[in-house]
Protein backbone atom coordinates (compact mmCIF):
# COMPACT_ATOMS: atom_id res chain seq x y z
CA UNK A 1 0.00 0.00 0.00
CA UNK A 2 1.45 3.34 -1.02
CA UNK A 3 1.29 6.01 1.71
CA UNK A 4 -1.41 8.58 0.97
CA UNK A 5 0.92 11.55 0.92
CA UNK A 6 3.16 10.03 -1.74
CA UNK A 7 0.08 9.25 -3.81
CA UNK A 8 -1.17 12.83 -3.49
CA UNK A 9 2.10 14.56 -4.33
CA UNK A 10 2.76 12.23 -7.24
CA UNK A 11 -0.75 12.82 -8.60
CA UNK A 12 -0.46 16.57 -8.06
CA UNK A 13 2.89 16.72 -9.85
CA UNK A 14 1.63 14.71 -12.80
CA UNK A 15 -1.57 16.79 -13.06
CA UNK A 16 0.17 20.17 -12.87
CA UNK A 17 2.90 19.22 -15.34
CA UNK A 18 0.27 17.83 -17.70
CA UNK A 19 -1.91 20.95 -17.33
CA UNK A 20 1.06 23.21 -18.11
CA UNK A 21 1.69 21.00 -21.10
CA UNK A 22 -1.87 21.60 -22.34
CA UNK A 23 -1.41 25.34 -22.14
CA UNK A 24 2.17 25.73 -23.35
CA UNK A 25 2.69 22.89 -25.83
CA UNK A 26 3.63 24.36 -29.21
CA UNK A 27 1.88 21.54 -31.04
CA UNK A 28 -1.83 20.75 -30.74
CA UNK A 29 -1.21 17.00 -30.69
CA UNK A 30 1.11 17.42 -27.71
CA UNK A 31 -1.52 19.55 -25.97
CA UNK A 32 -4.13 16.84 -26.43
CA UNK A 33 -1.76 14.16 -25.15
CA UNK A 34 -0.92 16.36 -22.15
CA UNK A 35 -4.64 16.57 -21.39
CA UNK A 36 -4.67 12.79 -21.44
CA UNK A 37 -1.94 12.79 -18.76
CA UNK A 38 -3.98 15.17 -16.58
CA UNK A 39 -7.09 13.04 -17.01
CA UNK A 40 -5.21 9.93 -15.89
CA UNK A 41 -3.85 11.87 -12.92
CA UNK A 42 -7.34 12.96 -11.92
CA UNK A 43 -8.54 9.37 -12.31
CA UNK A 44 -5.89 8.33 -9.80
CA UNK A 45 -7.13 11.14 -7.56
CA UNK A 46 -10.70 9.85 -7.81
CA UNK A 47 -9.42 6.42 -6.86
CA UNK A 48 -7.56 7.80 -3.84
CA UNK A 49 -10.73 9.64 -2.81
CA UNK A 50 -12.68 6.41 -2.67
CA UNK A 51 -14.47 6.61 -6.03
CA UNK A 52 -13.23 3.67 -8.11
CA UNK A 53 -16.37 3.85 -10.23
CA UNK A 54 -15.68 7.44 -11.25
CA UNK A 55 -12.03 6.68 -11.84
CA UNK A 56 -13.08 4.02 -14.32
CA UNK A 57 -15.61 6.35 -15.97
CA UNK A 58 -12.97 9.07 -16.21
CA UNK A 59 -10.68 6.78 -18.18
CA UNK A 60 -13.43 5.23 -20.32
CA UNK A 61 -15.33 8.43 -21.18
CA UNK A 62 -12.57 11.01 -21.25
CA UNK A 63 -9.51 9.10 -22.33
CA UNK A 64 -11.48 6.62 -24.41
CA UNK A 65 -13.93 8.95 -26.12
CA UNK A 66 -13.34 12.67 -25.67
CA UNK A 67 -9.56 12.72 -26.13
CA UNK A 68 -9.77 10.37 -29.09
CA UNK A 69 -12.37 12.71 -30.60
CA UNK A 70 -10.02 15.65 -30.11
CA UNK A 71 -7.18 13.75 -31.75
CA UNK A 72 -9.46 12.77 -34.60
CA UNK A 73 -10.36 16.40 -35.25
CA UNK A 74 -6.71 17.47 -35.07
CA UNK A 75 -5.91 14.86 -37.69
CA UNK A 76 -8.95 15.82 -39.76
CA UNK A 77 -8.00 19.48 -39.92
CA UNK A 78 -5.07 20.46 -42.04
CA UNK A 79 -2.59 21.19 -39.28
CA UNK A 80 -0.27 23.22 -41.49
CA UNK A 81 -3.14 25.57 -42.26
CA UNK A 82 -4.00 26.01 -38.61
CA UNK A 83 -0.47 26.26 -37.22
CA UNK A 84 0.14 29.96 -37.90
CA UNK A 85 -2.68 30.82 -35.52
CA UNK A 86 -1.26 28.66 -32.78
CA UNK A 87 0.49 31.56 -31.09
CA UNK A 88 -0.31 33.04 -27.73
CA UNK A 89 -1.23 36.47 -26.50
CA UNK A 90 1.58 39.01 -26.70
CA UNK A 91 2.77 41.90 -24.56
CA UNK A 92 0.35 43.54 -22.17
CA UNK A 93 -2.39 41.03 -22.92
CA UNK A 94 -0.17 38.09 -21.98
CA UNK A 95 0.84 39.75 -18.71
CA UNK A 96 -2.79 40.53 -17.89
CA UNK A 97 -3.82 36.94 -18.67
CA UNK A 98 -1.19 35.53 -16.34
CA UNK A 99 -2.07 38.05 -13.62
CA UNK A 100 -5.79 37.28 -13.92
CA UNK A 101 -5.34 33.53 -13.74
CA UNK A 102 -2.86 33.74 -10.86
CA UNK A 103 -5.07 36.19 -8.94
CA UNK A 104 -8.12 33.92 -9.23
CA UNK A 105 -6.11 30.86 -8.18
CA UNK A 106 -4.71 32.70 -5.17
CA UNK A 107 -8.17 33.95 -4.20
CA UNK A 108 -9.59 30.41 -4.24
CA UNK A 109 -6.56 28.94 -2.46
CA UNK A 110 -6.62 31.66 0.20
CA UNK A 111 -10.33 31.12 0.73
CA UNK A 112 -10.21 27.34 1.05
CA UNK A 113 -7.11 27.33 3.28
CA UNK A 114 -8.78 29.81 5.65
CA UNK A 115 -10.84 26.91 6.95
CA UNK A 116 -14.59 26.67 7.15
CA UNK A 117 -14.70 23.07 5.99
CA UNK A 118 -17.67 21.24 7.54
CA UNK A 119 -17.09 18.31 9.86
CA UNK A 120 -15.72 15.16 8.25
CA UNK A 121 -18.08 12.21 7.92
CA UNK A 122 -17.61 8.58 6.99
CA UNK A 123 -16.81 8.23 3.32
CA UNK A 124 -19.68 7.03 1.16
CA UNK A 125 -19.21 3.97 -0.98
CA UNK A 126 -17.80 4.65 -4.40
CA UNK A 127 -18.80 1.51 -6.26
CA UNK A 128 -21.14 1.35 -9.23
CA UNK A 129 -24.10 0.30 -7.11
CA UNK A 130 -23.89 3.26 -4.72
CA UNK A 131 -23.35 5.87 -7.44
CA UNK A 132 -25.95 4.25 -9.70
CA UNK A 133 -28.51 4.17 -6.91
CA UNK A 134 -28.01 7.90 -6.31
CA UNK A 135 -28.14 8.68 -10.03
CA UNK A 136 -31.30 6.70 -10.70
CA UNK A 137 -33.35 7.63 -7.61
CA UNK A 138 -32.61 10.84 -5.74
CA UNK A 139 -30.94 12.65 -8.61
CA UNK A 140 -32.86 11.21 -11.52
CA UNK A 141 -33.76 14.72 -12.74
CA UNK A 142 -30.06 15.31 -13.54
CA UNK A 143 -30.02 12.15 -15.62
CA UNK A 144 -33.22 13.16 -17.45
CA UNK A 145 -31.98 16.64 -18.32
CA UNK A 146 -28.55 15.36 -19.37
CA UNK A 147 -30.23 12.74 -21.58
CA UNK A 148 -32.30 15.38 -23.39
CA UNK A 149 -29.22 17.55 -23.78
CA UNK A 150 -27.17 14.74 -25.30
CA UNK A 151 -29.98 13.75 -27.69
CA UNK A 152 -30.57 17.32 -28.84
CA UNK A 153 -26.82 17.97 -29.18
CA UNK A 154 -26.38 14.79 -31.26
CA UNK A 155 -29.23 15.80 -33.56
CA UNK A 156 -27.82 19.30 -33.87
CA UNK A 157 -24.30 18.17 -34.68
CA UNK A 158 -25.65 15.85 -37.37
CA UNK A 159 -27.58 18.85 -38.74
CA UNK A 160 -24.44 20.98 -38.72
CA UNK A 161 -22.55 18.53 -40.89
CA UNK A 162 -25.50 17.30 -42.98
CA UNK A 163 -26.19 20.76 -44.39
CA UNK A 164 -22.74 20.88 -45.93
CA UNK A 165 -23.42 17.78 -47.97
CA UNK A 166 -26.68 19.14 -49.34
CA UNK A 167 -25.01 22.24 -50.69
Amino acid sequence: MIPEFILFWATAAVCVVGALGVVFAPNVVHAVLSLLVVLFGIAVGFFALGSPMLAAMQIIIYAGAVVVMFLFVVMLLDITEVLPSLGGARGVLAVLSVLGAVALTFAIVAAVTSGGLPAQADAPGGDAATVGWGLYTDHVILLLLAAILLTAAADGVVGLTQRRESR
Partner: peptide
Amino acid sequence: THLILVLA
Protein backbone atom coordinates in the same frame (compact mmCIF):
# COMPACT_ATOMS: atom_id res chain seq x y z
CA THR B 1 -33.20 19.97 -36.48
CA HIS B 2 -33.85 23.67 -36.11
CA LEU B 3 -37.24 23.11 -34.46
CA ILE B 4 -35.95 20.30 -32.24
CA LEU B 5 -33.14 22.49 -30.97
CA VAL B 6 -35.48 25.46 -30.37
CA LEU B 7 -37.89 23.26 -28.41
CA ALA B 8 -35.11 21.52 -26.45
